[in-house]
Amino acid sequence: MENSILDLKIIATKIRIDIIKMLNLAGSGHPGGSLSCVEILVALFWEKIKRTPENALDPDRDRFILSKGHGVPALYAVLAHRGVIPYEEIFTLRKINSRLQGHPSRLDLPYVEASTGSLGQGLSIAQGIALAGKIDKKNYRVYCLLGDGEMQEGQVWEAIMSAPKFKLDNLCAIVDYNKGQIDGYVKDVMNIEPLVDKLRAFNWNVIEIDGHDFEQILSALDEAELIKGKPTFIVAHTIKGKGVSFMEDNHEWHGKAPNDEETKIALKELEEQLNELLSQKMEVK
């Protein structure tokens, strides 16, 4: 591991702070699903993909496809913290002429790997990249993050059917199982349970974890790399809006930006979390 768990937690909290600031300045966007996937992205980009400006378009790089494109503020913040895009640029989110489109646009910003935002398409793209990796005998891995509501799309299940056929052990799908979508709870809108059983029945290696626990995320990603002959699906249980008390598990915060007052409260909470982590770090030293 390059970073301690504590360091990763600190990074994650900084990313959450940036997400709130970005959405507030943009005046629109999706906080709930951006905040729920932060630990997953940080674990991937800091410990596995290890994205840098130098490898950002390297043909041999590990890929990350954000199939749930509306969570892209989290990805932009991650790319900025990894130095791939200038930090200040994240505050141009959703503004006219910005490369940081409301949903990922590969035309504008190649580092997002694929244009997404219409749910259900990312896993197929990830599968294609993984297949090419097999043909070319490359060592790169392909990660794909999906929403739990997104799991209702038929195309997702077409890809779930095909990836094991092609023995894509270089493919790792992760579902951000935050229990919410727009019209309500996933279980009420269109239940996807028993999800783990379904995925196993489709011949995936399935690992169920707490998607906010770095140790669990990292050990699942390690296991995924070791499993040969089949793709891995990580079912990551998360909390929608994680980190901001009034956004947590609240459908209202799926797709609206915090106003100035709400931003102040959210940032205060997150900064307290950050200070707590920083003081833990002082103690460790």
Partner: peptide
Amino acid sequence: IGEDGYSQ
């Protein structure tokens, strides 16, 4: 529709 961009 504005800010959501092309995908929507």
